[in-house]
């Protein structure tokens, strides 16, 4: 049983790390603020949860497990709220999302050449 738990937690840890790096790259490559908030959302939910679940399987006793579950629950609750607040504030300040029809330069944040 422990071998299975170890193997599963290693895969979760590596998968979570991979998702984090992918979302970091997405954060740099995305042309517009709102697409970047999607890339940031990927890491907040999937990357963080996979890594923390991987740690959960390695937790020595239940006190550590409770703390991990609290962290996971809190991250899942707050990251959507933060991205919503960010998009709301950005839209409120006149940053329009970059739609397909518009030229990249027409959007509020110019696409990196």
């Amino acid at each position: 049983m422990t071998l299975f738990a170890d193997a599963l937690s290693w895969m979760l840890l590596l998968g979570g790390g991979m998702f984090c790096v992918i979302s970091g790259i997405g954060l740099l490559r995305m042309p517009d603020l709102f697409t970047r908030s999607h890339a940031a959302g990927v890491t907040d939910t999937v990357g963080a949860s996979m890594i923390l679940f991987g740690l959960l399987l390695q937790a020595p006793d239940w006190t550590v497990a409770v703390r991990l579950v609290l962290i996971i629950g809190f991250l899942i609750l707050t990251s959507p709220t933060a991205s919503h607040a960010l998009a709301q504030a950005a839209l409120g300040d006149g940053y329009k999302p970059l739609l397909g029809s518009m030229k990249p330069t027409a959007g509020a944040t110019k696409a990196r050449s």
């Binding site: 984090c20 970091g24 970047r36 962290i71 991250l75 991205s83 960010l86």
Partner: peptide
Amino acid sequence: SVYDRILALNVFGTKTVL
């Protein structure tokens, strides 16, 4: 824009937690 910076710092903070 400043909101990109806020977004990046939010991601940085979550990564610090991990």
